[in-house]
Simulated scan of single mutants.
Amino acid sequence: MHIYLNGQFVEKGEARISPFDHGFLYGMGLFETLRIYDGHPFLLDDHLNRLNQGLDALNINHRFSREEMNKILQRLLEINHLTNAYIRINVSAGMGEVGLQVDPYNEPNIIIFPKPLPQAGELIEKEAVLLKLKRNTPEGVERLKSHHFMNNILAKREIGESPNQEGIFLTKDGYVAEGIVSNIFWKRDQTLYTPSLSTGILNGITRQFIIELAGKNVLNVQEGQYSFEHAHKADEMFVTNSIQEIVPIISFEGHQMPGKKGELVQLLHQDYRQYCKSLWSRHCLRRNEQ
């Protein structure tokens, strides 16, 4: 498998970066994961916008455009003979002296990792389990998709390797936050609920897309701070991320739900299939309606 490293396409076993990279020494780095469907990088604009905002917050002097990134991605697909793929875009601060740096980082390390994926289609159900470990607070003003992932790793160790479960964090104040690698939604009556960014969650790209889809389908969406008891009474529940898409929940701490048979999950999944091979940004949904 070939990866992209600072302007070159190299065999993954040959890739090297310096131990003085501040992404390694101090966690100064960001990443994005996205999915490619039949050659199309779904919601690439949204991923790059979030990445560029994060780079600004970390004082890393580099910005990505759709044209630049899509050219790299298409070449990676070609070299690795891929059509459907997992993509991780990783940007670390680059080399620096040992010690905390205030000055901007001007030579970041840019690495893009591809992995083959099968064609998407069938909904895969999971159980949601409440984590004992609480969600940590963001390092800065808002949570970045950064190299600081220990809270997630410890949570994964808590529930183990089961592929059929997703752990759900509560905040230290007891509000529902997010999954280990996902955002969470639940439906009660005619309203779709999801934790607000004030809980310290990551503003997932698929989260934002689902909120747009719900609006397109004239569904009331409420973002707020919700207790476990509120979520536990859900009629339907699902979690989202850019690789697994929409994951229906069949049970949450003993409360059974319809999973992939849920009407809302089926509606959103149908829309997802419609847009995943063509949409560059969630904002395109609004333009399509005009």
Rank of each mutant, 00 (worst) to 15 (best):
L51Y: 00
D56T: 09
I79R: 13
F31R: 11
L44F: 00
L34W: 07
L48E: 01
L44W: 00
N90Y: 01
H81D: 15
A85K: 10
L34K: 08
R35L: 09
L73W: 03
L48V: 02
I87K: 08
G96M: 09
N49A: 11
L76M: 15
I89A: 05
R35G: 12
G94P: 10
V91Y: 01
M69T: 09
L100V: 08
L51N: 01
L73D: 11
D38L: 12
A57F: 03
D45R: 06
D46H: 04
N61G: 11
R63C: 04
T33R: 03
G99D: 07
R88P: 02
Y86A: 07
N49I: 03
Y37C: 14
M69G: 02
R63Q: 15
E78D: 14
R63K: 13
Y86D: 12
E97V: 01
L58V: 12
L55R: 04
N70W: 07
R35H: 09
H47S: 05
L30D: 01
E68F: 09
I89T: 06
H81M: 13
L100F: 05
M69Y: 02
G29Y: 06
D45G: 01
L100C: 10
Q53Y: 06
N80T: 06
L58K: 13
Y37D: 14
L76R: 06
E78Q: 15
Q101S: 05
I72E: 08
L76F: 02
L77D: 14
N70H: 08
G99P: 06
R50S: 10
N49R: 11
N59V: 05
S92L: 05
L30F: 00
G99A: 01
L30T: 05
V91G: 02
H81Y: 10
D38T: 10
D56P: 04
I36V: 12
Q53T: 08
I87N: 07
G39L: 11
E78R: 15
L73Y: 04
R88L: 06
G54L: 04
I72L: 05
D46S: 04
Q101F: 03
Q101M: 10
A85C: 09
I79M: 11
I79C: 04
K71Y: 02
G29N: 14
R75C: 09
N90V: 03
L55V: 08
L73E: 10
Y86L: 06
H40L: 14
R35V: 04
R75M: 10
A57Y: 04
L55G: 09
N80H: 11
V91W: 01
L44G: 06
G99K: 11
L34H: 03
I72M: 11
N49M: 04
L76K: 06
R88T: 02
H40P: 12
A85N: 10
I60A: 04
L44R: 08
L58A: 08
S65L: 06
I87Y: 04
L77Y: 05
R50V: 09
T33I: 08
G96S: 12
R66L: 01
G94E: 10
A85E: 12
Y37A: 14
L76C: 12
K71N: 12
L76I: 14
L82S: 09
N80K: 14
R75W: 05
F64M: 11
Q101H: 08
